[in-house]
Design a protein around this nucleic acid. Structure first.
Lengths: 232, 232
DNA sequence: ATTGATTTAAATCTTTGGATTGAGAAAAAT
DNA sequence: ATTTTTCTCAATCCAAAGATTTAAATCAAT
């Protein structure tokens, strides 16, 4: 199977040089892929990506000098079609989630079998994403958890529903940082009218000032936008 | 294999009664699971969930009266350990994403093989999540896309980095809707000092008032919190 | 030791924001 | 047809916010 695939170039980044050698050997022996470089430094790794533009980077996430996640983000920022497979010693949900969030195409543990690593590489080369079953479950648990509060909150009574359409327009402009003059200008109404609307908004949202009104709006799904509360 | 599993109870919700019968027959013949009910109505389905508390609900998402997603959300709100497997005619990324977001444990297409449906049920009963490979890729593409803008934005020059630690504390309190007096009280400093800090914050963030400062903070990942911009 | 940044504070002044009352016109609902 | 919302506007009035200047104490760094 694998012998018939086109030669893909792979870059290895891992601070453990022993592990680095092990993986290099594994890939050289068991696959037809090219290892275009190996390094224990995230920064050197980023430069090697720029230089060789490998199809895949296998990246350890706990590196000494620079955080592996940060390195992933910088590689993603280059806008190449280099795909990143995270290799980690930790099956921490938050780590998995953050890695996938910033653009990793897969995440495997260092304790996995060599066959699984090769499978992950093949899947990613085929344009897919790869998470082992256990990590996939962790990811989705975390993913759903991060939306749980939000879903519950939005199911509560939302004071925004009491606003008239005009008041919604005014609030929309408030959430864009406009003052009375700005809103009046944009809606072609007088400043005092805007004041009236804003005061009515305060009443309905049970807040004391524009900042609180804006915060209420943003935290309660105003403008058909929903925001997830996810610790970074 | 399946014959040794404990009998799980399954509820089917699908507006197409032919399809309903087909799946019922499939599950009855090929598995050891119990079909505790079938219905073409989302509302009846929700009531059946309350009554029978099935291990799994297989739910069509395009129902006539009530939106399938809404039905999922209502079932999730019950807080039971009923798991939902979405059955859909559409492999739309947004639909998959939203279904998983609100609590679905799996998503399979109506065009799939019967073996795949049984596999999905088994995986979900085992506490896992199940997305077929193609849908998994769609999900992750959409997932990463929803964070893309945010990552790019936060990789720009972030004016928040110019703030001193004290200014960050003040800004934090501003983002909670406090006025000068409130901030002064919470930080045990005078109101005029708060004004000084706030004015410095305005300078550094290049804004004109507290609302704009708060908006800048929230949109630039202030307070180690990141907010995803995901259309609901 | 001296520079530079940070935190604290006050005084002053201008502008903006917020509360309240009253009221006319138009649109929607009953 | 007539209530009821909604949208509009004005005039106050007071409180809060924002701009500006000046300055002392603390702390970190060279």
């Amino acid at each position: 199977m694998r012998e018939f695939k086109k030669k893909a170039r792979i870059l290895l980044v891992d601070d453990n040089s022993e592990h680095l050698r092990g993986i290099k050997e594994l890939i050289t022996l068991e696959t037809n892929y090219d290892i275009v470089g190996t390094t224990t430094s995230a920064n050197i790794g980023i430069n090697l990506v720029k230089k060789y533009r490998p199809e895949i980077v296998i990246m350890d996430v706990n590196l000494p000098e620079k955080d592996g996640l940060q390195a992933i983000q910088e590689i993603e920022k280059l806008g190449l079609d280099t795909r990143i497979l995270v290799l980690s010693g930790y099956d921490d949900s938050d780590l998995i989630f953050r890695a996938m969030k910033i653009g990793a195409r897969g995440y495997v543990l260092k304790t996995m079998s060599s066959a699984q690593l090769v499978y992950a590489i093949d899947e990613i080369l085929a344009g897919k994403f790869y998470l082992p079953s256990a990590l996939s479950s962790r990811f989705f648990d975390y993913f759903q958890q991060s939306f749980r509060e939000e879903n519950e909150a939005s199911s509560e009574e939302n004071l925004l529903t009491y606003l008239t359409s005009r008041e919604e327009e005014v609030l929309e402009l408030l959430t864009q940082g406009n003052n009375y003059k700005g809103i009046a200008g944009k809606l072609f109404i007088s400043e005092t009218t805007v004041k009236t609307h804003v005061n009515n908004i305060f009443q309905k949202l049970q807040v004391n000032d524009r900042t609180q009104a804006v915060l209420y709006a943003l935290n309660n799904g105003f403008g058909k936008k929903v925001r997830a509360k996810i610790s970074a």
